[in-house]
Write a protein that binds this DNA or RNA. Structure first.
Lengths: 140, 140
DNA sequence: AAAAGTAACGATAATCATTGTAATTTATTC
DNA sequence: GAATAAATTACAATGATTATCGTTACTTTT
């Protein structure tokens, strides 16, 4: 459980119901696209407008609260900003799993950027394939 | 210069003018989104329809000729399928540079996937930041 | 080289996704 | 608790993508 009120205020945003509901859904579910967030959020707040979700996803993205995860062939997912990690994206069920790993590649990528005189802001590593669960389904 | 005719036929696709023009634009420019491809293509083939580009991007993507590069906050770019590489994405000018590097992270990522029982199809590494050119512009 | 058959193209319509507007409501500050 | 500024809502407007269907073109077979 996180304190979304302070999370929002630290980023200079008003702590509205709507934003808290959106963050709760993303915080609990991990990775959701706009429509999935909307579907979840209206269960607890039926009058919340889809436009509000669009606007808040944008503003919370710009403020550094949320991070967009663009996915091949799908709508982007959104997650709460946290330490660098790798995404395991299942192309069968669409699930996305985070892998926080102190893999050396982090440093290698920093070095690569430096050697190219590229001022690095963000590293994104996505692995696409089939998760263990979907492999079992196909085998049976 | 590549032979787009055989590239298409090897993937079971008819070699039409339109597809060749699309591939030429992507092949020469590297990474373009739908609108950029359209703008370039109609210079040499003004009657080519935007719908044709959409349809062919999809079918050439499914056939393994093209690869989608989803980008945070932008429309996806498309590139011709080639060996694994890293993208350096400038958030100021939008340029995308490929970096073919025999970085060890490749193997580390394979190992990570294996240890998670994740059947890996595709590795995507994108570095977001400011390219050397845009750094110079800001400094002056 | 010509014809047949199949797939792709082009124009437009239809649908889906996203953003803008303006009046109302709400969170924050004093 | 009142004032202020920002956020929300509903809906309109725009933009992006997909579907349709008559026409055109590639490929194969002869």
């Amino acid at each position: 459980m996180m304190n979304y009120i302070s999370m929002l205020k630290e980023h200079g945003l008003k702590a509205t119901f709507q934003r808290m509901h959106i963050l709760e859904v993303i915080g609990e579910c991990g990775h959701k696209d706009i429509d999935e967030i909307y579907a979840e959020v209206i269960k607890i707040h039926p009058s919340l407008s889809l436009a509000t979700i669009y606007k808040n996803i944008i503003i919370m993205g710009q403020s550094g609260v949320l991070s967009e995860v663009p996915v091949v062939g799908k709508k982007s997912k959104y997650e709460i900003v946290k330490a660098d990690h790798i995404h395991l994206i299942c192309t069968h069920c669409g699930s996305i799993e985070d892998k926080h790993t102190s893999i050396d590649s982090e440093n290698l990528l920093d070095q690569l950027a430096a050697s190219e005189h590229f001022n690095l802001d963000k590293k994104e590593i996505n692995l696409y394939g089939t998760c263990g669960h979907c492999q079992n389904i196909k085998a049976s």
